[in-house]
Design a protein around this nucleic acid. Structure first.
Length: 558
RNA sequence: GCGCCUGUAGCUCAAUUGGAUAGAGCGCCGGCCUCCGAAGCCGGAGGUUAGGGGUUCAAUUCCCUUCAGGCGCACCA
């Protein structure tokens, strides 16, 4: 959209040099922004302000020179002015804006997409909660964020894979199995004492009951050690089932589920350690094997093989990340809760130590979700069984509202999630404001069609001249907002910040609502109705596109 | 003690990556349905951007510092 202006600026700079207005210094980056206020133009640049210093001239003087070289060079531009300390403000012609409106209809569900990602492969790992219990609300934030990011990156031209990493081996699996085993014996009337470190939530009892139903008394005789594998695998499979189910309901679809156990079985940990060794990054000390992550900025070196010969969890993660890169991903994104942020340094360090360019790995840490119940903090511990499952929130608040709630926040702010408040507030959730705008537009279209309008045919046959009547302030504002959508998407993708989409959509919905109140779309005036239908249909497309990226439904009625 | 994140309207959060007069929602006050959906619209009150210093034409944004909150600092996973 801005390309016309950027080219103009480029030319003006070149000419200015030729004519000797400007000394041939390094060209500052050309930046065009959209001013907040109408009377500051449709676009503005601070070019003259940033040039002023190197040119040793007054900013307004530089601006005036540039303007003289810009004026009359493009029929998309109506007026150019110098304002304030040296801004150059551009006012675009109506034609320019109407063309941008038609672009929305030309591209429809692809409107806002681009090829920023150059078809590169991106791997996004998220949620990855231990399979030792149902997902809790906090995982919902990770799920919503990762999924929306996936949609967003797909839209800007990446090939995205979503992956869940399963910690399906190690002490917590053993603990899980033992917890179920004890509950199982309890079901037969035994009094058991649950060790403090065992999983104590009621869901363990449910698993034990199901196993009892299936296999009866089969595990009462014989030692715990003998039966443990059954209890581990049964508990694990059951829980994975729950996790998949709730994620499915939440609208999150993982392409792959990656098993930590497999990475051990396939000797990939050894391969990763060998790679580190070949780079001279490993050393022995006090009977353990360490990796020199400090050479790449970590706080301290890390143990990969303990003195008892067992590999650390970190060793698996090293292997896992080697695996990601070896699978051919150009970019690897890892979404972690802030409680794991201490992990980022060593992860980035070890990736660099293995010889992969460190900027190929991006770790997004999102701050934690503080759970409240009527204003009082709930201590969440899966082990003690005191936590609010994501399932419960979805049931009571709904998928759309929950997703929107999490996606409204920048990931590095902590959020309070008050279950009681969320239930009360669900009717006031901003998501309904956006969805209502969409439903309202669908309703207008229905009315128009009842009166004989064929929307798609009308749009198809629309010429720019048919839209000339769209010159109310509200209409111009709407069109400008629509025109900004592609750039908003691009910016959100570059910054990996899906929350920008939620704010954009709220703004667009707000503009639509007030336009609706002020102007009637379907009237006796055929020409005006035609133009307005084209406008609101474009709004409808953009609302839908944005909601799709967030994984939120766009209901035609509500 | 060290490190990371955060501090913006009463509350929950934005702010075009350093730009012009810091914006929304909720809540509060006052208006608007004979009319395409009132889950909506219009108006009002509400701010020393935690405090202090610095960098420059320009700072909520970058640097230093103080204070406050969250999280992390294992041969655990």
């Amino acid at each position: 959209m801005k390309t016309v202006l950027l080219a103009l600026l480029e030319n003006a700079l070149a000419e200015a040099r030729e004519k000797g207005f400007l000394k041939d210094t390094e060209r500052p980056p050309l930046v065009l922004e959209v001013p907040k206020r109408e009377d500051q133009g449709d676009f503005a640049t601070t070019l003259a302000l940033s040039l002023a210093k190197t040119q040793k001239k007054a900013p307004r003087e530089v601006a005036a020179e540039l303007v003289s070289l810009l004026e009359g060079r493009s029929d998309a531009v109506q007026k150019i002015e110098v304002a304030g300390p040296g801004y150059i403000n551009f006012y675009m012609t109506q034609q320019f804006w109407l063309e941008s409106l038609l672009t929305v209809h030309r591209e429809r569900s692809n409107y806002g997409h681009c090829d920023l990602g150059e078809n590169k492969k991106v791997h996004i790992e998220f949620v990855s909660a231990n399979p030792t219990g149902p997902l809790h609300v906090a995982s919902g934030r990770s799920a919503a964020l990762g999924d929306a990011l996936g949609h967003l990156l797909t839209a800007v031209g990446y090939r995205v894979s979503r992956e869940y990493y399963l910690n399906d081996i190690g002490v917590q699996m053993t603990l899980l199995g033992r917890s179920t085993y004890l509950r199982y014996r309890e079901l037969f009337g035994e009094t058991v004492t649950l060790p403090e470190e065992s999983y104590q939530g009621d869901y363990i009892i449910d698993i034990a009951k199901k196993l009892k139903e299936r296999d009866g008394e089969a595990y009462l005789q014989g030692t715990e050690t003998k039966h443990l594998p059954v209890f581990i695998s049964y508990s694990y499979e059951t829980i994975i089932g729950w996790i998949r189910e709730v994620l499915d309901r939440f609208g999150v679809d993982f392409d792959t589920w990656f098993s930590e156990r497999e990475i051990h079985e396939k000797k990939e940990v050894d391969a990763a350690l060998a790679r580190l060794k070949s780079k001279g990054m490993l050393y022995q000390e006090e009977g353990a094997t360490w990796v020199s992550t400090t050479k790449y900025g970590d706080d301290k070196d890390r143990v990969v093989i303990k003195s008892d010969g067992r590999k650390t969890y970190f060793a698996s993660d090293v292997a896992y990340h080697r695996n990601k890169f070896e699978r051919g991903y150009d970019r690897v994104i890892n979404i972690l809760g802030a409680d794991h942020h201490g992990y980022v340094g060593r992860l980035k360090a070890v990736v660099a130590a293995m010889g992969y360019a460190p900027d190929r790995l991006t770790v997004i840490t999102h701050q934690l979700v503080n759970l409240l119940r009527e204003g009082v903090a709930v201590k969440m511990s899966k082990r003690a069984g005191d936590f609010v499952p994501l399932q419960e929130v979805i049931d009571e608040v709904g998928v759309d509202a929950t997703r929107f709630f999490f996606l409204m926040r920048r990931s590095d702010t902590a959020v309070d999630f008050d279950l009681e408040l969320a239930k009360k507030a669900s009717n006031e959730n901003p998501v309904y404001y956006v969805q209502y705008a969409y439903a309202r537009l669908c309703s207008i279209v229905r009315v128009a069609e009842e009166q004989g309008w064929d929307l798609s045919k009308t749009i198809q046959e629309t010429k720019l001249e048919d839209l000339r009547s769209l010159n109310l302030d509200e209409e111009r504002a709407l069109i400008k907002q629509l025109a900004q959508y592609p750039e908003m998407i691009r910016g959100a993708a570059e910054a990996l910040e899906p929350h920008r989409i939620t704010f954009y959509l709220q703004a667009l919905a707000g503009m639509l609502h007030s336009y609706y109140f002020k102007c009637r779309v379907v009237t006796e005036d055929r020409a005006q109705t035609h133009a307005r239908l084209v406008l609101i249909a474009a709004v409808r497309i953009v609302l839908k596109n944005g909601l799709d990226l967030l994984g939120i439904t766009a209901p035609e009625r509500m």
